[in-house]
Amino acid sequence: MSPKTLKSGAILIADAHCAPWRTHFLEFLHALDSGEIVTPQLILMGDVFDMLYGPITRTYRYNTEGIELINRLSSKLEIIYLEGNHDFLLEKVFPNIHVFTRQQQPLVLEYEGKKVALSHGDSAMGMGYEIYTALIRSPLVLGILRAIDTIGGGFIVSWLERQMKRKSHCRTIEHFESLIEKRLNRLSLDSIDILIEGHFHQNCAFDFPRFHYINVGAFACNERYFTVQSMQNKPLVYEAVFRKEPL
């Protein structure tokens, strides 16, 4: 059954980009598993892993510990996974959690009489991106790439790894508010009160005429995560930092 409610005390994490060269998210999962951090609901908002593609089993070896921890945690708390552009086709990887594909987002949940929409954030990005994202999720395309990668000794995944290591996740996007407003005008979001997204790593919020917008910061940048709190004269989400020293 699909979740209907955003729970008080829920934790939201976006863009951890977990990988063998970036393991702080694994430490966070261990803190949840040990009870050091407690939450009734964990919402993973996409790009949690730097490379995790359901049909490409070679990407599992980068993420075995994280996959096992999330599956173990699913027996203790409700976990919602909004697939991103770095982690998708995950239903079989995480059989006991709620996985929402890009097409199923935003996920709209009720909280204190408000409708809160949750999305990874890579929607309405233009025709070129739509074609790209459809291709990379195609079972046929992924099957061909998997075969080529296997025959070539894993050179495709190795090339992707090198690209991911070079990528910076902590840059500021200029004129972000106006860019987001133009993008969201192309979406039908009139029946919601709050929209929360990741993907852009900006850690900011705006009031638009139709709803309040929150772009949560990336866990990959200073290990930010966000806790849902009562909205009485306060923001919906409270920012916390898992580890106090900067990355």
Rank of each mutant, 00 (worst) to 15 (best):
L12G: 02
E91F: 09
Q104F: 02
V157C: 10
P95D: 02
A220S: 12
G152F: 02
D33G: 07
I144K: 14
F208Y: 13
P95H: 05
F226M: 01
S74M: 07
Y62I: 11
E177G: 04
S8Y: 13
G46F: 02
H212F: 10
V48C: 13
N203A: 14
I97D: 07
N96G: 06
G113I: 06
G152I: 02
A31C: 06
E161K: 15
A117R: 01
E110W: 05
I136R: 15
R102M: 14
L26N: 02
L236K: 00
L6M: 10
N96P: 07
K76H: 13
L32R: 06
A16H: 08
I196D: 00
I97H: 04
Y132M: 14
S75Y: 05
T101Y: 04
H30I: 11
H175N: 15
E174R: 08
S119R: 02
F211R: 01
K115H: 05
T150S: 14
A220N: 06
L187Y: 01
T101D: 10
M1I: 14
I180Q: 06
V116D: 03
I180Y: 00
I148R: 12
I67K: 11
Q232T: 14
P20F: 07
L184V: 03
I180G: 00
F155C: 09
I67F: 06
I192L: 04
V228C: 03
L44A: 03
V108R: 02
Y62H: 14
I11N: 00
Y81Q: 04
K167C: 06
R102Y: 12
G113Q: 02
T57Q: 15
I13W: 03
N96L: 13
G66H: 00
R171C: 07
I196W: 00
L109K: 01
M125A: 12
G66P: 05
A147Y: 13
M164A: 13
P20G: 04
